[in-house]
Amino acid sequence: MSHHVYIIECSDGTLYTGYTTDVERRVGEHNAGEGAKYTRGRTPVECRHTEKFDAKGAALAREHEIKQLSRERKERLCE
């Protein structure tokens, strides 16, 4: 099983970082209003960046690391 960290851009221009085992499914959940509470009122969302990991722990550590970055650094990841 692969583990992924993703960054999505919400309709209001904000960036949201999350973890999943299936990026396509998770983005669909966000767009259906079934994702994180933060994204529910900010649909549609668009996936801007993904990173793949073999281990869940590594993915969760990277998610935490990305969440600590400034918006500018997150935007650079999305380029």
Results as ranks from 00 to 15, higher is better:
77 L>W: 10
23 V>P: 01
9 E>R: 14
41 G>C: 05
28 G>A: 14
37 K>C: 05
23 V>G: 02
6 Y>M: 03
18 G>N: 07
66 I>F: 07
20 T>F: 00
25 R>V: 09
55 A>K: 15
32 A>M: 04
76 R>L: 15
24 E>V: 12
44 P>I: 08
66 I>V: 15
71 R>A: 09
7 I>G: 00
7 I>A: 01
52 K>V: 12
79 E>T: 13
65 E>S: 11
66 I>A: 02
23 V>D: 01
21 T>D: 13
26 R>Y: 08
38 Y>S: 04
26 R>P: 04
7 I>M: 05
17 T>M: 04
62 R>T: 05
49 H>Y: 15
59 A>K: 01
20 T>H: 03
60 L>E: 01
6 Y>I: 09
9 E>P: 10
78 C>E: 11
32 A>S: 07
70 S>Q: 04
12 D>Q: 06
45 V>A: 06
67 K>S: 00
61 A>E: 11
13 G>F: 12
62 R>V: 02
48 R>P: 03
22 D>C: 12
52 K>F: 04
35 G>T: 03
32 A>T: 00
13 G>L: 07
62 R>H: 12
72 E>L: 07
64 H>G: 02
75 E>I: 10
37 K>W: 11
9 E>V: 13
22 D>G: 10
30 H>V: 03
27 V>T: 14
8 I>E: 07
2 S>V: 10
37 K>D: 14
3 H>R: 02
59 A>S: 07
63 E>Q: 02
61 A>G: 08
54 D>I: 06
46 E>F: 08
78 C>M: 14
23 V>R: 00
48 R>T: 06
34 E>P: 03
48 R>M: 12
67 K>F: 00
67 K>D: 00
72 E>V: 10
29 E>P: 05
49 H>A: 06
10 C>M: 14
56 K>N: 03
32 A>Q: 07
71 R>I: 12
34 E>S: 09
18 G>S: 13
14 T>F: 11
73 R>V: 12
77 L>S: 14
67 K>A: 00
72 E>Y: 10
25 R>H: 13
66 I>Y: 00
76 R>W: 06
77 L>P: 11
22 D>N: 15
34 E>F: 10
46 E>N: 10
36 A>Y: 10
11 S>I: 09
61 A>P: 02
34 E>C: 07
31 N>W: 04
15 L>T: 06
42 R>Y: 08
10 C>P: 09
32 A>N: 08
66 I>C: 05
52 K>T: 15
73 R>K: 13
1 M>G: 12
56 K>R: 15
78 C>G: 11
62 R>A: 07
40 R>G: 08
45 V>K: 02
12 D>Y: 04
57 G>D: 13
44 P>K: 09
55 A>D: 15
53 F>C: 01
15 L>S: 13
40 R>K: 15
15 L>I: 09
40 R>V: 12
10 C>I: 08
